[in-house]
Amino acid sequence: MKTFGGPVLFLDRSDINTDEIIPAKYLTEITKEDLKPYILEDLKLPGFDPKGTKTRNAKVIVSRGNFGCGSSREHAPWVFEVNGITAVVAESFARIFRQNMFNCGMAAIELPKADVDLLISHSGDDDATMSIDIEAGSLTMSGGGKQKTFSFEISPFDKALVLSGGWVDYADQKY
């Protein structure tokens, strides 16, 4: 099955919206690959560089509440996907973004604020990495010589989507 994990990009702010993830002016691109250079282009956060190596190497994003609010554009998960980021861990998600992630076979994982605080305490560690086991519902954060495992829950439906590779094939067989 699909595995999730790798270097982590920390975006320590709530309400990161889809316009910040991928600005509307790029919605005219017809392929997902074309979106690649524009990831998080309009996001302004102290110390964050959309073109920096941290962004380029990331496989997982850790963020705060209401992540992915705003537009329904699936371009938001896609721009992550083509940049190799297939999981986002946050305190909470906007509904459409969360479902788009699972529909694409990617993971949107919610953890309580206290856990996210612990994850974000690694934001200074250059070697911060995470591994995520969807079946087991657990993720392990390591960095700066420390390691800790957290458990999470995703709905059985979302799990089925991740494990079967997305909603289109699933729905075409069943409905």
């Binding site: 329904s72 554009r73 459409i96 788009n100 529909n103 289109v168 075409d172 409905y175």
Partner: peptide, 20 residues
């Protein structure tokens, strides 16, 4: 409800959508 492109695709193809 607003949905993403994959949900739209399934809506177009099968006339259904999944919601919590």
């Amino acid at each position: 409800a607003g949905i993403g492109t994959t949900d739209l695709e399934v809506g177009i193809l099968k006339g259904v959508c999944a919601f919590r």
